[in-house]
């Protein structure tokens, strides 16, 4: 049980937490008994997708392990907003070391637990996209390659948010950031750059790789739960909109995340030992404009020359073909 029990502020209706569903079909988040691992009172912005994603994922991991989770955290928004000294929002054993080493610190904890014969305690490493795809990449790849018993969760908000929205290798083409300003002949982040970390993780042939989104709660929780049932190196890449960095409305976080999936820009899939084993098909395909226009970081693409939007549409279409997302 958590120190502070969960409260639903909206009462007198059944809509909160899918309480019309059968108990067994409800999400972990709908359960009043959930651990609330990342407690309220933290300092994230309104509508922060990362705060949601972390709570969803860790709560699900806690349920799957009967509350036996230790987590490490790379430097970044999640770390900063959750632990403003002398306070902490974490209700689990949690540790921050530096920016680039979350995966290695987790490996160390897992090794210690092994020596201490605490096989029931599981280790999770968490980081933002910058801490994962850029500076933490070498440590992460090492953790994968050795097949260490760690689940790595990447909260992807597509830039270095904690330092004021600079480009990372997860920043999508066309997006404006503080280091890819919307000026000059090719405004925003350059096309043809960036890396797809889930695919790179798969190339390590690790037991489990998945992508997830804060807009697909059931799916996200199921993937975390599944990952916790597997030993060895696991990776889940979670899509978490950032209203501040993306210039989207804090009330649109889930909508933006859903549109990323429905346009094909963020495919949801699972892979085992390097092989894709499941994907979430797109039910109603949405043109990328619908997604882009909600975010100020793409506002400059809506001028007279719309060719960049067409190029982003091509990326979405390619994803749909490549991952087989079209509903049969």
């Amino acid at each position: 049980m958590s120190l502070q029990p969960v409260k639903f502020y909206q009462t007198g209706t059944f809509t909160v937490g899918n309480r019309l569903l059968d108990e067994s079909l409800r999400t972990v988040q709908a359960n009043m008994q959930r651990t609330n691992s990342l407690n309220s009172g933290h300092r994230a912005c309104q509508g922060c997708g990362e705060a949601l994603g972390a709570r969803y994922a860790i709560d699900a991991a806690m349920r799957a392990t009967k509350n036996r989770v230790i987590a490490t955290n790379a430097t970044g928004c999640l770390e900063v907003f959750s632990t403003p000294y002398p306070e902490t929002s974490w209700q689990i054993p949690w540790m921050h070391s530096v920016f680039g080493n979350a995966a290695s610190v987790a490996t160390g904890i897992a090794a210690a637990l092994k020596v201490k014969k605490k096989s029931d305690v599981r280790v999770i490493a968490q980081g933002g996209d910058g801490g994962t795809t850029d500076i933490g990449f070498a440590c992460l790849s090492g953790m994968f390659e050795r097949n260490d018993d760690v689940l790595y969760l990447c909260y992807d908000n597509e830039a270095y948010m904690n330092t004021g929205v600079q480009r990372s290798s997860a920043t999508p083409p066309g997006a404006r950031t503080a280091t890819t300003p919307a000026v000059g002949i090719h405004p925003g982040n350059a096309f043809g750059t960036g890396k797809n970390l889930p695919l790179i993780a798969m190339a390590h042939q690790i037991p489990y790789v998945a992508t997830a989104s804060v807009a697909n709660l059931h799916d996200l929780e199921a993937k975390v739960e599944k990952a916790m049932g597997i030993c060895g190196a696991r990776y889940i890449h979670i899509y978490v909109p950032c209203p501040l960095g993306w210039g989207s409305s804090p009330s649109d976080t889930i909508k933006v995340a859903r549109l990323a999936v429905e346009t094909g820009l963020f495919p949801l899939f699972e892979a085992e030992h390097g092989e894709i084993v499941s994907r979430i098909p797109i039910r109603n395909k949405v043109p990328v404009e619908e997604y882009l226009k909600l975010q100020k970081r793409f506002a400059h693409l809506f001028g007279e020359d719309r060719s960049a939007i067409a190029m982003i549409q091509e990326i979405a279409d390619r994803n749909i073909r490549k991952f087989g997302l079209e509903e049969a």
Partner: peptide, 28 residues
Amino acid sequence: PITPQTHIVEALSEMVRTGELENCEYIN
């Protein structure tokens, strides 16, 4: 990027983009 250096290099990235700083490669 790292606080508190960010504003310096952000300004430089903009100057390279706008052409104010010519003949310069800016690498993130």
